[in-house]
Design a protein around this nucleic acid. Structure first.
Length: 427
RNA sequence: GGAGUGAUGGCCGAGUAGGUCGAAGGCGCUCGCCUGCUAAGCGAGUAUACGGUCAAAAACCGUAUCGACGGUUCGAAUCCGUCUCACUCCGCCA
């Protein structure tokens, strides 16, 4: 029973987990149920293993008897009964084991001690900001009006071809999408030392369990009909699962992957939210950064990850702020998380454009993702982290809104000009 | 999609008329010896998970694991069924 939360540790110090989950406002009955079933399971297991031991000894004896030509009929008759009991008990043990596993998969990760307490996103903590918010001599337009006016994004036809929350990038819009992806990948590989990856956009059940998207969050994804496959909600899934069920050598760490992909989200439960524009779509593109690191380094790596993502915003001259997510707003999988929020002038607000998280060994246990400090050392679980560097659609929105000019044209960030074939202004 | 072959420990590779097989042998690796360097040589060791004993570690006991799941049997790496994956050939396709 590998993977998942550390069952032995939960047994040993249930209060630590109780507290860690309590701060996340999680239902604690799962934990109580887990402890109860675990105890019953261990009891039944001991019993059936005792019977099996008996059976093994008897089988050996029978083999000896037969070899020496003696009659073993009565022994065989006796063992028939034992064998039947084993069969029945095995079933019980299997069921209990399955329930323990299921519970372990359902229980969220605990919170890191440094995370600020809070009830909701209202209580997230401001960390720092960067950049000058642009001042306009006119009323700044929302990005979707600018995009439509410049014929860069076709919202109506996106809906016609597929449905709501789908768009078609067109002309300079399509070019900009491609330019941003290239720029971000070049930057993260050249400046920040990531290895470029291009994953499949479909992942299987095991991979989604590995990252923690299953079993709890299946409704947030698109499932392929009749297949155990899902469209990936983020490249985090394939990239984190790249080394699933493998043992890495210490010198391979930290693993740093930068992967560009489309991301597919059902957005169940967000009806009516951000219905216009590029902010919330069923499909968007993103460059995702994933790190596999030694446990003792994961919080330092998280800080560096935030900087790696912030680098892109600064290179694109986009004002942003960093906030730390409080306990009440933290997702099920993370122990600690920072959001990068970009300034959107039309809404007069910061919007999330990147999310950087440490999962400690939560995903590593689920994905059985380990490393060895020495060649002969016991394998240990790595810590996994990821962050968006960045979401392309929201970056386009930010570029359009922050760079807009009175005549309806948009000034492009200098870093992007080479990627746009020398173009400095969209008009 | 059709036809065929295969899946054993870190790797290679034995093992199918079911019975002390967790699994021969080799390689690799670790430790020791030897050799005034290196190589070669000699000896020993070398899977994992779970449960239990223990305050705990070590150690020990037990169970499971020969692609996965299920079946037959007192007993399965070995027999049967289903599935997955890999490779070869044909077809199709970007």
């Amino acid at each position: 029973m590998t993977g998942l939360l550390d069952l032995k540790d939960i047994r040993l110090r249930p209060d630590y987990y109780r507290k860690g989950l309590e701060r996340k406002k999680v239902d604690l009955s799962l934990l109580d149920r887990l402890l109860a079933v675990d105890e019953a399971w261990r009891k039944a297991l001991a019993e059936v293993e005792q019977l099996k031991s008996e059976r093994n000894r008897a089988s050996e004896a029978i083999a000896h008897l037969k070899k020496s030509g003696a009659d073993a009929a009565s022994e065989i008759e006796q063992m028939k009964e034992v064998s039947n009991r084993i069969k029945v008990m095995d079933e019980t043990v299997r069921e209990q084991d399955a329930e323990v596993r299921a519970l372990l998969l359902e229980i969220p990760n605990v919170v890191h001690e440094s995370v600020p307490n809070g009830e909701s996103e209202e209580d997230n903590v401001f960390v720092r900001d960067w950049g000058e918010k642009p001042r306009f001599s006119f009323e700044p337009k929302p990005h979707y009006e600018i995009a439509a006016a410049l014929d860069m994004v076709d919202f109506e036809r996106g809906t016609k071809i597929t449905g709501s929350r789908f768009v078609v990038y067109k002309g300079l819009g399509a070019r900009l999408e491609r330019a941003l992806a290239s720029f971000m990948l070049d930057f993260q590989t050249d400046q920040n030392g990531y290895t470029e990856m291009f994953p499949a956009f479909i992942a299987n059940n095991e991979s989604l369990v590995g990252t923690g998207n299953l079993p709890k969050f299946s409704e947030e994804m698109f499932k392929l009909e009749g297949l155990p496959y899902y469209l990936i909600p983020t490249a985090e899934v394939p990239l984190t699962n790249y080394y699933r069920d493998e043992i890495l050598a210490a010198h391979q760490l930290p693993v740093k992957f930068a992967g560009y992909s489309s991301c597919f989200r059902s957005e169940a439960g967000s009806a009516g939210k951000d219905t216009r524009g590029l902010i919330r779509l069923h499909q968007f593109q993103k460059v995702e950064l994933v790190k596999l690191v030694k446990p003792e380094e994961s919080y330092r790596e998280l800080d560096m990850l935030v900087e790696d993502c912030a680098d892109i915003l600064e290179a694109l001259e986009l004002p942003y702020q960093v906030i730390e997510i409080c306990t009440g707003d933290l997702g099920a999988k993370e122990t600690k998380k920072y959001d990068l929020e970009v300034w959107l002038p039309a809404q007069q607000t910061y919007r999330e454009i990147s999310s950087c998280s440490n999962f400690e060994d939560y995903q590593a246990r689920r994905a059985n993702l380990r490393f060895r400090r020495e060649e002969s050392a016991k394998p240990e679980f790595v810590h996994t982290l990821n962050g968006s560097g960045l979401a392309v659609g929201r970056t386009i929105a930010a570029i359009l809104e922050n760079g807009q000019q009175a005549d309806g044209s948009v000034r492009l960030p200098k870093a992007l000009v080479p990627y746009m074939g020398g173009l400095e202004v969209l008009d």
